[in-house]
Design a protein around this nucleic acid. Structure first.
Lengths: 168, 168
DNA sequence: CTCGGTGCAAAGCTTTTGCATCCGC
DNA sequence: GCGGATGCAAAAGCTTTGCACCGAG
């Protein structure tokens, strides 16, 4: 929907370079998937990607989607998240800045944020632990204190309700 | 193996109070599962818990394990993690301090750490976003720079190898 | 022409559900 | 005794795999 041509050109280049480095083939399916992902603005799961691509010109199988997502994650063009129990969610990596997430446990609303202190923690970990950090994931699980939250007040008891893991 | 009686007595009390609050039954299975979890020192998954309990006196079903883990998570006696794609991992919450994880993408080794800066980020998020943070999850994915890492050097290319998600 | 990639369907694995039985309250 | 909890097995849901065919290099 909102594909930025310049961004797409740029990430295509990166993907091509990656495929060449790994001696993998530059198939039309792989670039169609990249294009579809970079047309999206929100987080998505494999199933919604599969449906979107079926509705359009391309007929790709789930197997190809999983394969390509692994490649795109490997070359840092998409980021994988594990918010819920049984489903990976993905998002494009560019032009987003590195960011993290706050998730409302009432309505599953996602707020993105960015904080330099995480980078300083990372630096310290690398120095003290002899690791090279490749990426990180920080998620706050929270309940909304605003009255306009879809589920305001549902979780104000001492113990949380069991969470609804489905997407809103 | 390493069950601390005082800790177990304490968490049993908490679990009892929780069950009473929710008007749920205090079944022997539930306390057997709590005991098994608090005998463990490492992260674990449902299957390994199932096998451990089968090898011992208690015969609990997977269904009961899942049910009880939900309850224990709900009253904060157990913490759930989503390190990999398709499997929840758990750990006891006490007497551990709040901590986070660094995972070696080569050998899946887990390092725990603790940093007060995360709490300050959380505080700021609560103030600016009108959310009450219930818990958080921060994980660094890293490759080891030490020669004694089980897989030292395997991931030193520009692009990561596809990760082995099985437990070491 | 070769062999990696694809689509399809079946299999795999974790987690959930249905139902008869059991037992805490 | 009532109704929630359990065990078992079957089902569900996401992901991977096997195989024949296709097409990029």
């Amino acid at each position: 929907m909102a594909l930025n041509p310049k961004v797409f050109e740029e990430v295509s280049k990166i993907f091509k370079a990656y495929l060449e480095t790994k001696e993998l083939r530059k198939t039309p399916e792989r670039f169609a998937i990249l294009e579809e992902i970079y047309s999206r603005t929100e987080h998505f799961d494999v199933e919604s990607l599969f449906i979107s691509m079926q509705e359009k010109k391309y007929r790709v199988s789930r197997a190809t989607l999983y394969n390509t997502l692994d490649l795109l994650e490997d070359c840092f063009l998409v980021t994988r998240h594990q918010f819920g129990k049984n489903m990976s969610q993905f998002e494009k990596s560019f032009p987003n800045r590195q960011h993290d997430h706050l998730i409302c446990t009432d309505c599953n609303k996602v707020v993105e944020f960015c904080d330099p202190r995480i980078y300083s923690i990372q630096k310290m970990m690398e120095e003290t632990q002899s690791f090279k950090v490749i990426h990180h994931s920080l998620t706050f699980y929270a309940s909304c204190t605003k009255k306009d939250c879809d589920n305001f007040g549902k979780n104000n008891s001492v113990y949380r309700q069991s969470e609804n893991q489905s997407n809103s």
